[in-house]
Design a protein around this nucleic acid. Structure first.
Lengths: 246, 246
DNA sequence: TAATACAAGTGGTAGTGACCACATTACAAC
DNA sequence: GTTGTAATGTGGTCACTACCACTTGTATTA
């Protein structure tokens, strides 16, 4: 990582500065509660305009790395506020963040007619309710963590094969690389349920064990509903992390 | 709500524009999936600079009201993405959003020595571990929804009385009005547990019923840990809503 | 007819300059 | 010593300008 801003770089200058500052924070060069150089000083340091600098600081502030105090300066956040920022993550990322190796067992992979509830969440027209149903056991270090059922709303010319999913492991990666669909927003609900006999067997818990049920509707960058996904997490193994801001 | 930007207004211009646009969206004057006027047109319309306009649109975009497409324009989000934006809410706000009348029964209100786990989350020094413990049953339309235990880290000169809490109902309102402490960020975890006999009685469920356990550490605008709060929600009555972005 | 090139309009990036609001410090006046 | 004040430095707001990247529609060309 370079420490200067290169105008010829394809990366915008403000983003180059974001990277430089974040690196300095992560490497401890800038330490928590200490002020970073003022905006005018950064102008001098990197030979870029204040507009650009403010754009970079705004991003790092929103991400929780920095905080500003009017009239005093811009400061590095305590670590507590730096990591685990609330972001839209998929299961694999989630597991890796917890230090576990993600894995999966594909139980089902077939196109079906969407059930009413799924059709409603995906806002499918009556005419075409074909969705791809994928059911998987999700593993962390080889141990079942959750049972995931995805319903994908894809166009007729967008197809995914079971082999692709087995190879890649991440649905989101396939969506992005193959169809340029980027998951940008999601609605999610969390609630408690009890394991049915089938769920209990698959998750290796006893029948009636408490589970954490997450239901999520995923939206692409074009504001189109892409996926409705249900995940049943083992109540004894899974804890949900959030970071809230106002 | 005025439809023009007043330079003499104490409110910054970009924020006045935010209000104008949001009102137009909420009143249906700007409809979902339709483009709003381009940045150059807004310059003409309101006689403000593009810098200011972009600042306003950036806010509405982040809040989910608008989305931008490079080379095409800026558009109003489908309703789905407008409401229930992910924000830090307190119990009262949460209940009202669900159309329920919030209520409470105060079970405990006393200063105590913080238990180790609480002290750790609040990052209390060994020397002073006094916290205010408040235990409440939270009601929605008179029915128990959750059992909440708060631990407040207040300075010696910051005191809250039980009467104040009974009158106001909202701890956050008191913190803000009396001490100018604004809750800005929080870490939260969600998991599943089973009701102990005491919890079962208080929540009017049977012993061993599944509950949703939320643990939250709250931070002020000055990056100081203010509150550690545990809420046990009835598994059969409560569903947690989120909106995720990336 | 189909492919290509161009022009116009959109948001994205960047610089400059100005002034305001707020916090802190140093210093003078009391 | 305490108080008030001015200077300085910080982030916050705003205007104006320029050019780039991307999308779309239209005209041109093969």
């Amino acid at each position: 990582m370079s420490r200067i801003i290169d105008p010829r770089d394809a990366l915008p200058k403000y983003y180059q500065l974001v990277n430089i500052l974040r690196q300095q924070i992560e490497e401890g060069e800038l330490t928590p509660l200490q002020p970073i150089p003022s905006e005018r000083q950064l102008e001098e340091l990197y030979n870029i305009s204040r507009t650009t600098i403010r754009q970079a600081i705004e991003i790092l502030t929103r991400q929780g790395f920095l905080y500003r105090e009017h009239g005093r300066g811009t400061f590095v956040s305590p670590q507590k506020l730096q990591k685990g920022l609330f972001e839209l993550t998929n299961f694999s990322e989630d597991m890796r963040m917890r230090g576990l190796e993600p894995g999966q067992i594909i139980l089902d992979f077939e196109p079906i007619e969407a059930p009413p509830k799924v059709a409603q969440h995906l806002e499918l027209p009556e005419a075409n309710r074909k969705v791809l149903r994928i059911e998987r056991i999700r593993l962390g270090d080889g141990i079942p963590m959750g049972l995931q059922t995805s319903y994908l709303a894809l166009s007729d010319n967008q197809t995914i094969t079971r082999q692709e999913l087995e190879r890649s492991g991440s649905l989101y990666a396939i969506l992005q690389e193959k169809f340029h669909i980027i998951p940008t927003e999601a609605d999610e609900t969390l609630e408690v349920t009890l394991a049915t006999p089938r769920e209990a067997t698959l998750l290796q818990v006893s029948e009636g064990s408490p589970l954490l049920l997450s239901e999520r509707t995923l939206w692409s960058q074009y504001r189109r509903a892409v996926e409705f996904v249900k995940i049943l997490y083992r109540g004894d193994r899974y804890k949900y992390f959030l970071k809230l801001t106002r």
